[in-house]
């Protein structure tokens, strides 16, 4: 009995979509457009997110140690720093590595390499590059570095320089730009999802308004509310499913076409690379949004004619 009724409900939902072909086409078209915008925003948001992540990764606080500091002291210092919840990553570069890095970077610049050879000592300092969990954590990390007293014999002499204070203004400005960009990207995505929902909701409401007589007759025949409502929810789900699949497929050529321009402008990986690598996640997200919007819109629209 339950199986038969479920089968009938699915059949009725499908038949509604097929027999109402023009209206179904209109809803699926609007749904596709809306989900396309949402999908594009998600991809673009991913590009923005990777760009901001990249920028964020470039921001760090570097502590330079005086040449007399032993590695043991530096490691002790690093371990102590690592215990801070604000610290995401610490990279240690020894004096020798710093020199090698520099040489490698300027391997084609003979003048620079000659200049280095003239010097008796290694001019580079051992350093710790510290990356924070959040952009706002740098201030507290810098304060910690200032007050750190693990070198009880003479705490101030081992740290030669902390570059946070030299770069503070740039770091703060960059942090602010990153945070604002992230906030606005998310806001725009949410806004687009909301607008899409409103458009689709109103179209589905219109369709169900056109079916109000049918709903009334079904009720007078003695059909249960769920039997009247569920086929409409199934139809709404089908609109969402088809719309999301078509929207995802439409994103293929569009992301491919726009990818070089986005790459040139923002750097990092292009739209198309994200489309390919996140295809299954993207289609899953769009299906969930599409089906949910279709089903919820249908539920809210039928409620008006059933729950009285």
């Amino acid at each position: 009995m339950m199986y038969t009724q479920t089968k009938r409900i699915f059949y009725l939902g499908l038949v509604n979509v097929i027999r109402n072909s023009f209206v179904s086409f209109s809803v699926i078209f609007v749904m596709t457009m809306s989900l396309f915008i949402v999908g594009f925003s998600l991809l673009f948001g991913q590009v923005m997110s990777s760009v901001t992540d990249e920028l964020r990764n470039k921001v760090d606080v570097t502590v330079y140690f005086v040449p007399e500091t032993t590695e043991e002291q530096i490691f002790k210092f690093r371990d102590r720093l690592g215990e801070l919840s604000q610290v995401r990553e610490i990279i240690y570069v020894s004096q020798t590595s710093a020199l090698e890095e520099y040489r490698k970077r300027h391997e084609n610049d003979i003048e620079v390499l000659k200049g280095l050879d003239i010097l008796d000592d290694n001019p580079f300092r051992a350093r710790l590059s510290i990356r924070a969990q959040q952009s706002g954590d740098f201030e507290s990390i810098a304060r910690f570095l200032e007050n750190e007293d693990i070198f009880s014999d003479n705490p101030t002499t081992v740290i030669e320089k902390i570059d946070y204070y030299q770069n503070r203004e740039i770091i703060n400005r960059l942090t602010s730009v990153i945070d604002t960009a992230t906030f606005f990207t998310r806001l725009v995505i949410l806004l687009l999802i909301f607008i899409s929902f409103i458009i689709v909701f109103n179209i589905i409401r219109l369709i169900i308004y056109l079916s109000r007589e049918e709903i009334k007759v079904m009720r007078l025949i003695g059909a249960e509310d769920s039997y009247v409502r569920l086929p409409f929810l199934i139809s709404g789900g089908i609109y969402g499913l088809v719309g999301s699949v078509v929207a995802t497929l439409m994103l293929y050529p569009v992301s491919y076409w726009l990818s070089p321009a986005v790459e040139r402008f923002f750097g990092g990986e292009g739209l198309f690379a994200y489309y390919v690598s996140e295809f299954f996640l993207l289609i899953a997200v769009l299906i969930v949004i599409g089906v949910l919007v279709g089903v919820v819109s249908s539920y809210l629209s039928t409620r008006r004619y059933l729950d009285d």
Partner: peptide, 21 residues
Amino acid sequence: FRLLSRKTVYENIAFAMEALG
């Protein structure tokens, strides 16, 4: 009449029985 316009004659009649299980 108030028939269901998107259903055939058979379906209009069968619907009443389907709805009643």
